[in-house]
């Protein structure tokens, strides 16, 4: 038996919105410690790794490990029926073929209950493991989203060049070029506005703009995004949850 109660439906809404355009369906792996997902997009360029730790929930129990195959478009439709501020409880029996979803209005005496049919998903997982990191950038997630959107008007690729004291986002396209430079900044009054760059080795990597457009759909999950870059390796883009994370691993583009 799995049962997890979110203090606010908005958190699961945001998680599903951040994932559903990248992967249509995925397995939710439920254990006593929480719920995790690994899913890869159809082109096998972008990997999503989600961890919702037990502490994220108002109440949580999972007596036995269970895997729930979920169509994210369908889940999104049902979750969309609840108000952001509702309590949201998901539950499933051990051999369930459906996921039970209950919204409780905190003011009105109103309870809405839905069942989502589960899917049998045969996922082949990738062994991501711990990765070395040459450069780490942490910046406001809204700023990163704007950089990605602004640069996408120029090119299908976004080049990220990190040196000791700056990160350069560069786009070179048919209509012209664009450069955005950000530098470390400590904002004591508004720590969420701070920018940090730590560097072991300079970085010059290019990523597909269309995949970055998918990644920045997670912007509402966290005020900050952490970007971990390693030479000749996938970039890791991490949005922290109250307890857990939503991470994207994006394979880079290379010169032909």
């Amino acid at each position: 038996m799995l049962e997890g109660k979110f203090e606010e439906a908005s958190l699961l809404k945001k998680i599903v919105e951040a994932m559903k355009d990248c992967v249509s369906s995925c397995n939710f792996n439920c254990t006593e410690n929480g719920i995790s997902v690994q899913a890869v997009d159809n082109s096998r360029v972008l990997l999503i790794s989600l961890l919702i730790e037990k502490d994220t929930f108002e109440e949580y129990r999972c007596d036995r490990n269970i895997t729930l195959g979920v169509g994210l478009g369908s889940l999104s439709k049902i979750i969309g029926n609840g108000a952001n501020s509702d309590y949201l409880t998901i539950s499933a029996d051990d051999d369930a073929d459906k996921l039970n979803i209950i919204f409780e209005d905190k003011v009105k005496d109103k309870i809405s209950e839905y069942n989502l049919k589960l899917l049998d998903i045969d996922a082949d997982l990738l062994d991501v493991g711990p990765m070395d990191t040459d450069a780490t950038i942490t910046l406001p997630s809204a700023d990163f989203a704007k950089i990605c959107k602004d640069m996408k008007v120029l090119s299908e690729s976004l080049q990220i060049i990190v040196t000791k004291d700056s990160a350069l986002f560069q786009s070179v396209g048919d209509i012209g070029t664009g450069n955005i430079v950000i530098r470390p900044k400590t904002d004591i009054d508004h720590p969420e506005e701070s920018v940090t760059i730590s560097l072991d080795k300079p970085i010059d990597l290019s990523f597909g703009s269309k995949y970055l457009s998918d990644i920045i759909k997670a912007t509402s999950l966290s005020q900050k995004v952490t970007i971990k870059l390693t030479d000749q390796s996938p970039g890791v883009f991490e949005y922290k949850l109250p307890s857990g994370y939503l991470r994207f691993y994006l394979a880079p583009k290379f010169d032909e």
């Binding site: 096998r44 394979a251 583009k253």
Partner: peptide, 14 residues
């Protein structure tokens, strides 16, 4: 132009 790589080039299967 640049060529998109695949995650399978970096990560093995579990």
């Amino acid at each position: 132009s640049k060529k998109q790589s695949s995650l399978a080039q970096f990560f093995g299967k579990t």
